[in-house]
């Protein structure tokens, strides 16, 4: 099939960007969206033009690197999939597809479709860890964790930190990301010791980075490739309230 692509091109963070139109010819339905872009880029390189810059790494939906807004929806709007898992069979011959970078003040565009997501790294540095003394390997089941808790923590740990939640939110809020990290660590016995300090610090860092506030629209959970539910945000709201009343 043949497609028309309207792609955001921007030289660097300080240059103004604009949409450029490209033709993608002979696209195979089994290609992923990124493979289709690879083919377009090969043609651009062969013609002596600058290829379209975009982020990608594992190409199997587990690393959280790919980050494209396709026709207004981060990751393209198919349940539980990243852009690298989005196949061209979902598009029709002759369709025009708009491709944009994540849009949020804390995620400035570095080049074309690549944004700087260091704001997420700063949030993780603020509290997305547990402190342990190094030493011998602990016994496998030395700390008992109930099935219910381990399942819930695992659901939260599924977050790959891609930032689609921020990109989809009309307020560019990072609540789903931060709440997934908080829930993951605060639920488990290993993370409980630093529970209050963790949530207070991660929320402060999130606010300082300039992310917006949660208005419970649910866009974040709808686009999340790992289907992190909104309940995680409620859990973080609860943990933060307990933490600040304890004097954090």
């Amino acid at each position: 099939m043949n497609l028309t692509l309207k792609v955001w091109r921007q030289k660097d963070a300080n240059s103004p960007g604009r949409f450029e139109t490209y033709e993608a010819r002979d696209v195979i339905a089994d290609m992923s969206f990124l493979e289709m872009l690879d083919v377009v880029n090969e043609e651009l390189i062969a013609a002596g033009k600058e290829p379209i810059m975009f982020d990608s790494d594992c190409r199997e939906g587990i690393c959280g690197t790919c980050s494209l807004v396709i026709n207004g929806i981060p990751h393209g709007g198919h349940r539980g999939t990243t852009v690298c898992q989005l196949h061209m069979r979902h598009f029709q011959d002759g369709q025009t597809i708009t491709v944009e970078p994540w849009r949020a003040r804390p995620f400035p565009v570095i080049r074309d479709l690549i944004v700087d997501r260091k704001a997420f790294d700063r949030i993780i540095q603020a509290g997305g860890f547990i402190s342990v003394n190094t030493g011998g390997t602990p016994d496998g089941n030395a700390i008992p964790v109930s099935k219910q808790i381990s399942d819930k923590a695992m659901d939260a740990a599924a977050c790959i930190g891609c930032g689609a939640c921020v990109a989809a939110c009309k307020n560019a809020s990072a609540m789903l990301f931060v709440s997934a990290k908080v829930t993951h660590l605060n639920l488990l016995p290993q993370g409980k010791a630093e529970k209050d300090r963790r949530v207070a610090r991660m929320v402060s860092t999130m606010d300082e980075a300039g992310f917006g506030n949660c208005t419970v629209t649910g866009s974040c959970a709808a686009v999340c490739p790992k289907e992190i539910p909104l309940d995680m945000i409620a859990k973080m709201n609860r943990d933060y309230a307990l933490a600040i009343f304890k004097g954090e």
Partner: peptide
């Protein structure tokens, strides 16, 4: 927090 809008406002979900 969202100074630049997308070309299509889909408001997914």
């Amino acid at each position: 927090a969202r100074p630049v809008r997308y070309t299509q406002d889909v408001f997914y979900g």
